[in-house]
Write a protein that binds this DNA or RNA. Structure first.
Lengths: 251, 251
DNA sequence: GCATATTTGTCCGTATGTATA
DNA sequence: CTATACATACGGACAAATATG
């Protein structure tokens, strides 16, 4: 049995999920804070991170019992976490078979770029008058360049994703933000299948910087054109590499 | 007691959820078909419909016991359905208080229109060369006009939503489709609070037709301009009416 | 303010169908 | 075809929070 599983014939149990345990019904130290996290959300956070970093690669099955015992949570709680991630399209649920880390089809990759092209370009075109709040974009470009100097290619990938998320944030729409957060998280699944972070991301460091500088100069149209070119090139490259690799992945 | 609630000490029970009962463990007639649905998903479908048609208005609390008995499903299953709808932003979950039909804040309404403006206009602008596949738009306009003749204002609302969903479908992106399906479902929540379907929808019947005809003539730019004007007017009108009413709704 | 009833939160045990070795 | 493993779903139990008198 998992730690903490003994002695409770019902009611609450202290979870072994996180070191800073804040079980929703336990001793709530920080109840007043916004965003109280449920056990399921914390479990989802853990799994989301594992998936994003490739610890659970696409195609892997996540067994309820094994993970539930490993994290010390009940099946109900774990299934709740699975549902959160399924809704984020990181897991797929097959009835009576369990949940699996999503394996994107090639059409998923093309659809992701269709959304990016539509939304990211629309955001740039819909910007008002300069100057723009480019803090997030600035930081993402700097992070990416620093990671590249250190040879940290997964870090470059993360920074790249941050750049485009920060770009979308310029629209100031919470729903659009959330959409793109999900879409970019899905994109990571494709990166893990291809598994060539340097080849995938290094070419785009300079292009991100060019887009940033165009925006800083207030040249919306040029930024939009650069972005469109970026996305088309990125899509072409990724789809080609992905189509070669995706056949090897099980499930 | 609900029908079917008696006599089962465990295991499966034939649900009273749907007339065409396809309990996952029951006699599966159409097993081969894609998209086998779990009990929770079917329950969610029912509740989603009830919310969309205003049977459960915004602010209403959905009691576990009452609904669970009424639908003949266990609490666990019902809670699973609640979670699905919570992720669709139709319900909100308050710890130890239960789930409620979402009451949109005014900022939610403005954000919904921000997304619509961004996405719908980008779709029109991103259309290729005419002619376009306008079947869905055609049907929606016809449905709306027919419903208006019959004085069926909720029907006009539904047709209106179908029109804009069909418009987005022209982009051919599954993810964009799903985003807008969710956003338009949220918008319905606002309509139910204002509760003046005629005033809200009647003025836009002709404008939908104008947009359709512009697209049929292949005049993308004009269609885009009409759409932008439509959305700005609709937002202004709805936000004004909504701000007056939202204070009256409990929770 | 306090005691009580109701409701939710969490977990367990179990029966049964489905998929796979 | 059988056996095994697992997911689905139900009912029950009790703690904790909220609502009610």
């Amino acid at each position: 049995m998992a730690p903490g599983a003994a002695g409770a014939t019902g009611g609450r149990r202290e979870g072994a999920v996180a070191t800073t345990d804040r079980a929703p019904g336990g001793l709530a130290d920080d109840r007043a804070l916004l965003g109280r996290t449920s056990t399921a959300e914390r479990v989802a956070d853990i799994l989301r991170t594992r998936i994003a970093e490739g610890f659970f690669p696409p195609g892997d099955r996540l067994a309820e019992d094994a993970i539930g015992k490993a994290l010390g949570v009940s099946r109900n709680t774990l299934r709740e976490a699975f549902r959160l991630l399924t809704h984020e399209r990181l897991l797929v649920h097959e009835l009576n078979r369990g949940v699996f880390v999503r394996v994107l089809a090639v059409e998923d990759v093309t659809d992701i770029y269709r959304v990016r092209r539509l939304v990211e370009c629309a955001v740039v075109q819909g910007l008002g008058d300069p100057p723009y709040a480019l803090h997030g974009l600035d930081a993402a470009v700097a992070d990416g360049e620093r990671a590249a100097r250190e040879g940290d290619w997964p870090g470059v990938s993360t920074a790249n994703i941050h750049f485009h998320h920060a770009l979308v944030a310029l629209a100031g729409s919470a729903r659009t933000d959330e959409l793109m957060r999900g879409v970019l998280a899905e994109l990571r699944l494709a990166f893990h299948v291809v598994d060539d972070p340097r080849g995938l991301h290094q070419p785009y460091l300079v292009r991100n910087r060019e887009i940033l500088e165009a925006l800083r100069a207030g040249e919306r149209a040029r930024a939009g054109a650069l972005l469109a070119g970026y996305l088309d090139d990125s899509r072409t490259r990724l789809v080609e590499a992905y189509a070669r690799r995706v056949a090897d992945v099980p499930a």
